[in-house]
């Protein structure tokens, strides 16, 4: 897979292929979709088991569920304020989906669905539409004053308004590209160094000793990738709540 013909093939890991046999072929059900379903299922089971038991002294699973709940609940409360409580389910779903997408990608032979720009772009567009609809629902037409800060000179309006609008739309791009680029870069690096291990390992007597170096790098990288998986899910969620804050409070 990696070192065929002594070349480094770091991108084939992102290719989609149908799974589940005939059924998968018929509806183009790829391993990416399968991982999404797994992510949703894991989130559902975690929350269900946490809520069902509800013991006073939480066990490991319940502690995990409660920790993730209170982490996002605290983030939404801090960022959006008390009015933001009703947006908690949205932010929590986004966070868990992205987090599990990143983490499932760390399982060997699995697939990272957050490494596809189309997936992250769709998530970002959903966030963008929800935030804009919330702002329109709360403020109505007053929402459009968002694009022209109070107190700015009137004759600057033809410049300020397009700039603000572009800045508003650029949220979609920055939100999606950040997650996508981080996941792709990490997995490409892992694959490249893993290929180095194989290539250098075949160098005869000294091979195993030289190959230990990229192997050590890979061990460090795996740890780093777990950090990135958490951090990017956190960043996605906190930016969602910052945008919600802007939508609720305008300015």
């Amino acid at each position: 897979m990696a070192a065929e013909g002594k070349t480094i093939d770091a991108l084939s890991q992102f290719e989609l292929s149908p799974v589940l046999g005939v059924f998968g072929d018929a509806v183009s059900f790829s391993q990416s979709n399968l991982m999404m379903l797994v992510a949703v299922l894991i989130t559902f089971l975690l929350m269900k088991l946490t809520a069902d038991r509800g013991e006073l002294v939480p066990g490991r699973l319940q502690a995990l569920g409660e920790a993730s709940y209170s982490f996002i609940a605290g983030m939404v409360r801090d960022q959006v304020g008390d009015e933001g409580k009703k947006y908690f389910p949205f932010v929590f779903s986004i966070f868990m989906f992205v987090l599990l997408g990143n983490l499932l990608g760390m399982v060997p032979y699995s697939f990272t669905f957050t490494s596809h720009i189309m997936v992250t772009l769709t998530l970002a567009i959903v966030v963008f539409l929800v935030v804009t609809c919330v702002a329109l629902a709360i403020h109505g037409m007053h929402f459009f004053t968002y694009f022209f800060p109070e107190g700015a000179p009137k004759w600057l309006a033809p410049i300020i308004i397009p700039v603000e609008i572009i800045s508003y739309f650029s949220r979609v791009v920055s939100l999606s590209v950040r997650l996508f680029a981080n996941m792709v870069a990490g997995h490409v690096m892992l694959k490249v160094f893993a290929t180095f291990v194989v290539l250098l390992g075949g160098l005869g007597a000294i091979g195993p000793f030289v190959a230990a170096m990229p192997l050590a790098v890979n061990v460090v990288l795996v740890g780093f990738e777990f950090l990135v998986a958490f951090l990017q899910a956190y960043v996605f969620a906190i930016l969602t709540s910052i945008y919600l804050h802007d939508a609720v409070h305008l300015h």
Binding site: I166, S167, F169, S170, R171, V172, V173, S174, V177, R178, A181
Partner: peptide, 16 residues
Amino acid sequence: RAGVEVVSALVVGIGF
């Protein structure tokens, strides 16, 4: 983050 912000605004502007 600053890099991503600049590039994404530029991309949106060019796209528009």
